[in-house]
Design a protein around this nucleic acid. Sequence first.
DNA 1: ACATGTGAAGCGCTTCACAGCG
DNA 2: CGCTGTGAAGCGCTTCACATGT
Lengths: 198, 198
Amino acid sequence: MQRLPLYLQCLDGLAAGTSLISSEDLAAEAGVNSAKVRKDLSHLGSHGTRGVGYDVEHLRFQIQTELGLTKDRAVVIVGLGNLGRALANYDGFTERGFSIVGLFDADPRKIGDTVDDIEVEPMEALPAAVGERGAEIGIITTPARAAQEVASALADAGVRSILNFAPAVIHVGDDVEVRRVDLSTELQVLSFYLHRNE
Amino acid sequence: MQRLPLYLQCLDGLAAGTSLISSEDLAAEAGVNSAKVRKDLSHLGSHGTRGVGYDVEHLRFQIQTELGLTKDRAVVIVGLGNLGRALANYDGFTERGFSIVGLFDADPRKIGDTVDDIEVEPMEALPAAVGERGAEIGIITTPARAAQEVASALADAGVRSILNFAPAVIHVGDDVEVRRVDLSTELQVLSFYLHRNE
DNA sequence: ACATGTGAAGCGCTTCACAGCG
DNA sequence: CGCTGTGAAGCGCTTCACATGT
């Protein structure tokens, strides 16, 4: 089901006039097999029209519903180095229904800075802020050494989903979903493919 | 083989004195099954010692060799918005043997800016720069609408691996490896899990 | 005794191929 | 006639379990 956001992105990239799309065309756009597309979409009870294809607008709505994108999600970011600041300013989040409701950093010199009109708060303010503002997702953009402590703090505060950009593996309870995005890992995988063809 | 960078990261995170590690311990650290670790490591002819475990330093060397991390890789970044600038400044790249050899942007106002001591050049300079500086990897941090054009330009210039942060699906020839990192997609997947438990 | 390395079984995802429907 | 929806086959990854080696 990790492909649904990909499909959504493909639908967004379609020419403005397109109101119908076949599984074949969507598959080509997404770079996957068309049977896979049909199976994925059938899982959401998506009734396309046989002989015609899928209604783009309806499909978009169904995917958004399945992903729980119909309501806004409150997000906090911990660690306002270059990456944290870039994410705080990233329009793509707000455009897709993710509201940033808090920025936190352990460095006293950064407290009080404003990034994207939001004030940076100290770590001590995190637990209360998460509860009061209903934050469900935490983004970690700290150095590796701070990542585990921050993850635990987020989990304790009630955050149930963590997106970890720190180059460290973090461990939390089973009730918290963690996704790891490591920039160096991505380059290393590319390096592997380059190396393979040498 | 996408797990090798993860293992490498776990090895980096180990306490300083640790010179031996069992598949069980490494698996726990990485959050995977221990049989998987052994199978992965056996694929690189990694001879651990039965009854003892793996030599951490030797293992690290073997993984780095397998990933082709023994030589530096030259990287160019296209698109110097917030994210591009954050990546240009990201120490993790240089620490792991990836050298940034060029920064490019289509916006004339950004040309000549320096980011991390590197000057931003216009898109027209890309083809020659990639060839002269031996760039093998291109990072795309442009808006979605520019991503395809930039990807094609990179491929034409001779780049064989692309890391795409733009929220768009790009299409290139089979001789170019593309990895997609979409920040919104990550949040959408987390949203799905949140939604699932509601 | 203990941990690796690995056949073999298991499992889920992917792909095929076609029946069913518009 | 065209495209969806889906059983069934295929395929690769994961996991088990144990023989092997130190």
